[in-house]
């Protein structure tokens, strides 16, 4: 069986006296091996201290994003066979490092939800005995298209603006707002949306490099979502008093 070399970023903030370094491991490579399989193998057979995150291992939950040979990707669905030479693994930038390949995306994304007020703003009271409000199926599908984001952080890690500006909401944030803007159940006014995202922290911070669009593992149409929100923000901004 062929073998594969991995070069993995190591640093534990709990032991700051040990400076960050790259550590190499070589393991056997069966056909169809994913980075998920490889990292577990390394942990179980070579180095039980290695930290990384997986949950669903099926590209649904967004836990395992990392920089793989220079690209932010989901480790669970990356086959080592598709990569050339040594596999270099780094933690996602922007997010707070927990240790080795593990970063704190949870705190970042909760903050994003709070900042963009990502919930349905409705004045209606729920009546358990009433039938549901109707919605066009096309609208439901349109909402789901934006809602498919799994908050993995690949778009944020690859984004230059997000790397410089701590307060930039990135493609995930702008896409999240787009999701509520197309939802007829959300009663927010143009002005309210503009306040949330009509600034350099939001729609106008984007510099159009579109690394987000290239890196999104869910293949969300981020370029279209970002420009949709940008155009909406211009019209909201110019029309509002």
């Amino acid at each position: 069986m062929s073998t594969r070399k991995f070069s993995i970023f190591r640093y534990n903030p709990n032991t700051p006296e040990v400076k960050p370094f790259m550590q190499e491991y070589t393991i056997e490579e069966p056909p169809g091996m994913t980075i998920f399989v490889a990292l577990n193998k390394i942990r179980e057979e070579l180095d039980p201290t290695l930290m990384f995150d997986f949950v669903c291992r099926a590209a649904i939950c967004g836990s395992c994003a990392m920089v793989i040979n220079g690209k932010p990707r989901l480790a669970c669905k990356t086959l080592t066979g598709d990569l050339k030479g040594t596999v270099t693994l780094m933690p996602l930038p922007v997010f707070k490092l927990i240790g080795d390949l593990s970063v704190d995306t949870g705190t970042w994304f909760r903050h994003l939800s709070v900042k963009t007020k990502s919930w349905i703003h409705s004045s209606k009271e729920f009546d358990p005995n009433a039938i549901e409000d109707r919605m066009d199926n096309e609208t439901a599908l349109e909402i789901y298209e934006a809602e498919r984001c799994i908050e993995c952080g690949c778009c944020i890690a690859g984004c230059v603006t997000a790397n410089i500006r701590e307060d930039f909401l990135g493609a995930a944030g702008i896409n999240r707002v787009a999701r509520f803007m197309v939802d007829p159940r959300d009663e927010r006014s143009k002005k309210e949306y503009f306040e949330v995202i009509g600034s350099d922290e939001g729609a106008f911070g984007c510099m159009g490099l579109m690394a987000c669009d290239d890196n999104c593992p869910m293949q969300l149409p981020l370029q279209m979502q970002l420009s949709f929100v940008r155009r909406k923000m211009v019209s909201f901004g110019l029309s509002a008093k």
């Binding site: 919930w119 729920f126 005995n129 409000d133 199926n137 439901a140």
Partner: peptide, 18 residues
């Protein structure tokens, strides 16, 4: 049925009858 309708109010984009 009530819970599903409540989820609709909370934002779940359930597929709809065409």
């Amino acid at each position: 049925p009530k819970a599903v309708r409540q989820m609709s109010m909370w934002g779940v984009p359930w597929n709809r009858v065409v």
